[in-house]
Amino acid sequence: MRNLIDIRELTTDEIASLLDTGDDIMAHPGDYRELCRYKKLATLFFEPSTRTRLSFEAAMYELGGQVLGFSEAASSSAAKGESVADTVRVVGCYADIIAMRHPKEGAPLVAAGVSPVPVINAGDGGHNHPTQTLTDLMTIRREKGGLGGFTIGLCGDLKFGRTVHSLISALARYDGVKFVLISPEELKLPSYVKNDVLRAGGCEFRQTAADLAEVIPELDVLYMTRVQRERFFNEEDYIRLRDSYILTPAKLINAKSDLTILHPLPRVNEISTEIDSDPRACYFRQALCGKYVRMALILKLLEVTK
């Protein structure tokens, strides 16, 4: 493994090994503090994503490495019309590893094709975002004690939500994962994900537009998503759909006591802030896992071992 462009490139064993390393770093951060000394991570963010960028940067700093890069296309050579390939060839002379975010789908794959150093896809448009999926998997595994044998509800924008699609395709590999797809009609999971991933993988799933409170009692994991304004042509549709699934304390009344509530963040209003202090709210612990699993990934791609 030299790059990570798409979560589907990873075998189940490779995922397990990354999550093991992530857990170990979390438990013994001191053992990892110097491992990437004198190494540099370039964060090439052709579109802003502060959260993801900071997570990568924190990961590299905590490994003792250093970070360089840019946080939006306007401050990069792309603004002058340079191709992705040329940018990466040049940056590859200065950095040991690259994390790239790009608004165009497939840009990190182009980068990986020419880069002299490993490339990590930090999100390419609505396409892939493998480190988010690794983050989700690490969090679920920690909270549930394993991957498999649980019922996960995915709620909100299942149509455009790329994190949902790749989480579903990652979880479909594990035994005994049951999916409950909760969304308004307009934001249903696309049929190609249902056919190519869920049906092809023999997964148990059902779709519902029912109220969250109605389905919540059977869930072990609840993955909330944000409805993004830019996906909609008119403001009314956006506001109507945005408000269709909001998690409130009232809806949690009949939920299991060990429910794991996740959200890729940032949230708008999908989860009421009153829930933040509930022990079942795991989304900030999820953000923490994001840093550790990125540390694990950087180590793996740089072939650095403890």
Partner: peptide, 13 residues
């Protein structure tokens, strides 16, 4: 034909 594809931004690919 996907306008969000990198090939739409970089015709040389």
């Amino acid at each position: 034909r996907n306008p969000r594809c990198i090939t739409s931004a970089e015709p040389g690919l």
